[in-house]
Design a protein around this nucleic acid. Structure first.
Lengths: 340, 340
DNA sequence: AGAGTCTTCCAAAGCGCTTTGGTCGTTTTG
DNA sequence: CAAAACGACCAAAGCGCTTTGGAAGACTCT
């Protein structure tokens, strides 16, 4: 059932039927009802391929997926996707993942924009002065950055959490508990979120005249194994930290293992606070010692990004609005006063 | 730059240019070269929207993503996606995720097929007599099932691992080590993989006259918390198992925690074997006691599914070919002879 | 030499929608 | 009361590609 048939069967022109269906004003309400009704009864659905050729609108959100044998997709992605998908569903939006060589994403971005393959895109894991942001800005497609980039002479739309504030608060708590030697196990420090977390921590330390020494900071991709390595490196120093802030729950698994291996205990010898993106399959309260966390649901972020993307597509949101979410500090058993 | 312009500038018809570009035989080699050359020089890329309207081909693989506030996307998905994406990239295929109400995916499948939104789709986490398989079969779109369904009067294409064989081998090993009270911590037992694993284990036990009692089997979604709960339930029985086979590494984290909480040890009091889908961020060899596993890279499966999907799209693969991959049994420190 | 056969190209008809630029009555307005 | 404005509808021109159904010329065959 296509438009032509439907129009013919209603003894109307395609123009009128099309307009009736798309809510244009220049059509009699009575006629509109007739059309709507017939469309529903016959299960008419406009062919998206035809529509997109005519309008350029696709009803799809794009994401360029860096791939390669050595490239691992972040497990956070799936949670973000849960939120994004949940919202997208309610608005009949699909998500298209365009795999790209991790070292040359630009070509892919150019392609999907030039080909009008999607109405909007989002970017994740941005870095300072991220080229993707600059590119999309010049290409002129609606986009939102999940996270933040920095150092541009233009503004852009983003959704980020207050990473700096979160780790500032975490560090402040630890300092208040008497800790003086703090360490940070961070994610990839080329990414903005990691830079912000480090900055937050440094700021908290600075107010007490403390510094975060080179020896007290690790920055690695967020795997259990790297968490373990980092923790061992930190704890086997001559003056080991008495408290660690860790950027990920997964890494924290490794930290906990290292602490055990070294015959230490949490929070007796070491206080630990980790960032929790809220996975359904790994909860901080279920750690051997319930883990204190800075918490922010990445799933909610996914839904919000979808919502804003949809708003941008339909012209309801404009301008370079940045949105920063506060982060909860949830205190559990893994922190205690500094050992004396 | 569109076809019309290119044709005009070459003083050829659109027909000829189109055919030259698409490798049709009825065009002079010399002409073809000229066309190809000009196309490259001017960076001509056929507009996919137009092409798909004309041909119905989209260059996209589809996946219906069950969503909802209470629905969690399986973290395995992201690894599978890594493989799928890696292959898809090399063949200029995109992946479109169509979010659907988890309780009504049929509508979405019908939509993407009726609208010709994708060239092929794949299905994951199938159950016996999975309605999606039956549906796609009647809808007549190329598809591949990752995993297996059962109980149809038709065949279909799938890629699965030998879950039954894997757990058969795992159980056999444990039995050989003298274990008599084995338990299984399984995934959702409505899914085929879980059924097959249980079957494999029962078969191994049966050869020694043993059975897997109701009290020795748990089946839950694969989270750390559920692993913990299951392990406690099993181990706090009057006659607790001396060996456990577990369907997931994530659940195994919970098992290990439970064992600790109960003051038991691995492998002294309990032998443990888990299935490993090979995550980059959680490795069995890094468990407190290195974990024995049945191993099969889900990432490789993703790449293979993409490859076969591509083959089906281009007509290179036909028929209902089922492919079953063997699973490695990797023995590490978490198994030992049964306690006396 | 005339009939067939290739080879190489083209004009034009789709694909199914949106949108432009009307037309034709009917109402309002100065 | 003529002119302007409006309401409701339509025919046809795109969108940019593929594909059908030739056509023109060169070549082969009997």
């Amino acid at each position: 059932m296509n438009l032509k048939q439907l129009a013919h069967m209603l003894a109307l022109s395609q123009t009128t039927v099309s307009r009736a269906l798309n809510g244009y004003p220049e059509v009699n309400e009575e006629t509109r009802r007739r059309v709507m009704d017939a469309a529903k009864r016959h299960g008419y659905r406009p062919n998206p391929s035809a529509r997109r050729l005519a309008t350029g609108k696709t009803g799809m959100i794009g994401y360029v997926l860096p791939t390669g044998a050595a490239v691992d997709i972040d497990p956070h992605f799936v949670e973000f996707l849960s939120g994004l998908g949940d919202y997208a569903r309610s608005h009949e939006l699909d998500l298209v993942l365009s795999p790209a060589d991790a070292d040359d994403q630009e070509t892919t971005y150019r392609r999907i924009v030039a080909n009008r393959q999607v109405d909007a895109v989002y970017i994740s894991s941005p870095r300072p002065a991220d080229r993707r942001v600059a590119l999309l800005n010049t290409l002129g497609i609606p986009f939102i950055v999940h996270g933040r980039s920095e150092g541009f002479d233009f503004d852009y739309a983003f959704l980020d959490i207050d990473n700096e504030g979160a780790f500032h608060e975490a560090a402040r708590l630890l300092i208040q508990l008497g800790h003086r030697r703090l360490a940070l196990i961070n994610g990839d420090d080329r990414e903005t979120f990691a830079i912000h977390r480090e900055r937050g921590m440094r700021r908290a330390l600075a107010t007490t005249g403390l510094v975060l020494g080179e020896r007290h900071i690790c920055s690695l991709t967020m795997t259990e194994e790297n968490g373990y390595r980092a923790a061992r490196r930190l704890l086997e120093q001559s003056e080991p930290p008495t408290a660690i802030a860790c950027s990920s729950l997964i890494m924290s698994l490794g930290v906990v293992r290292a602490v055990r291996d070294l015959g230490l205990s949490i929070p007796g010898d070491l206080s630990l606070i980790a960032h929790d993106d809220v996975f359904p399959w790994l909860k901080p309260e279920n750690f051997p010692v319930p883990l204190s966390t800075t918490r922010s649901s990445i799933r909610l972020a996914g839904a919000r990004v979808a919502e804003r993307l949809a708003a941008r597509i339909s012209g309801l949101e404009e301008g370079a609005r940045g949105e920063v979410w506060p982060v909860d500090l949830v205190v559990r058993g893994s922190v205690a006063g500094a050992p004396t």
